[in-house]
Design a binder for these strands. Structure first.
Lengths: 202, 202
DNA sequence: GTTTAATTTAAACGTTTGTTTAATTTTGCC
DNA sequence: GGCAAAATTAAACAAACGTTTAAATTAAAC
């Protein structure tokens, strides 16, 4: 891992903990064990570092979902596979996911936010296609596919973003974080698969 | 409205837009049209102002839900009423809701975060009681009530927090914000009622 | 081994931050 | 009207911010 990547990893951790504005360049340099000038040297500015972090992570975002589409299976089987992939992926990159959604939760419109939304919408379109195919083939009942996507992403986002609250709701102790507890992630997957089958199957 | 309240309203707006760390005391004073020293004069510090804002808003949080419990109705009717109340309430205070969840999405544990979670958990407990009563009476099928709550709050949070994304998903133009569009809120309520009935009824 | 470029450093840059001061104006009360 | 309390002001505070500089060190190339 290059030093540049190391700085990005540290930035990811600090941004997730304290937010973008709450993280100073000095604190980042100290955590990464580099001189403060190295941030400007590598990235130009703090904001460019952030943009770099987004690009650093989103490149793998879409491929997984597209992989599901290609498999020859029923729409419900695809949906279940989607849930496995989605939950695993978000949970394994929960820090980045947290930063991403904290950023777009700011109302101010920036180019960075536009970029983030564009990337996420590509994934949304993939999922919507999957749901609508199920509806058109008659396998699924008619449902507001848009809002179902909001529910699926919203549920997972709630679990990752507000983990301090969610762990209390679920009654699981969160030494470290529950994302890495297989028992908990299984519980979430089982629940979400039950959710989509109840909502989609006739 | 007192001047103090006026400052809190302005703070709510700025915090929702730029985040807590992203909002300077000077910018707040300017928006509120008061001298910068008035913030310290009224609240002591920026952080105390934030705590004051939380208390300013959460006092009405619980009463509405508790009101539903007292009505003599079926569990499903209560759930539907809950959705109406919850969606209306969050949407009417979407700025505050945004600030609240942005705050607890920070991993650092502060007394303020503990306070927020405690308040929110009281509401969670009310809803869980409602669901579990329906299950015990046999009206509802057995379901992971904890995660259903995560889904309900997560869906609404996704709609309010990431409104720029959600509006794109739903395909609604968001001149101003869609929270005030009755047609959209109705669509959301209809969807959520369908969701709970599909998930809870046998 | 010398030279050139890349990397790293300590120090300082000018702003902006949250907060405080001390003087001034406004308000309410007798 | 006079007086004490409350409200408001402009100015300044030290500290922290993101960024830049120019010198020192390391690495690579010939």
């Amino acid at each position: 891992m290059t030093k540049k990547d190391h700085i990005l990893e540290c930035a990811e951790e600090l941004f997730a903990e304290n937010g973008y504005d709450g993280t100073s360049v000095r604190a980042l340099a100290q955590k990464a064990g580099v001189n403060i000038a190295m941030i400007s040297y590598y990235f130009g500015s703090k904001e460019e570092l952030f943009a770099n972090l987004v690009e650093y992570r989103v490149s793998v975002l879409r491929e997984r979902i597209q992989g599901i589409q290609k498999v020859d299976a029923s729409s419900m089987e695809k949906m279940e596979r989607l849930i496995d992939v989605y939950v695993d992926r978000i949970f394994s990159q929960f820090r980045f996911h947290r930063i991403l959604h904290r950023q777009i939760s700011l109302q101010r419109r920036s180019e960075l936010n536009e970029l983030i939304i564009q990337v996420l919408m590509k994934n949304v379109d993939e999922v919507r296609k999957l749901i609508n195919e199920g509806i058109e083939s008659g396998e699924f009942r008619k449902i507001d596919a848009d809002l179902l996507i909001v529910t699926l992403t919203g549920t997972v986002s709630q679990l990752t973003l507000s983990s301090a609250l969610s762990s209390r709701i679920m009654g699981v102790e969160t030494e470290g974080c529950y994302f890495k507890d297989d028992q908990v992630t299984d519980r979430i997957k089982v629940y979400m698969k039950d959710l989509v089958s109840q909502l989609l199957l006739k």
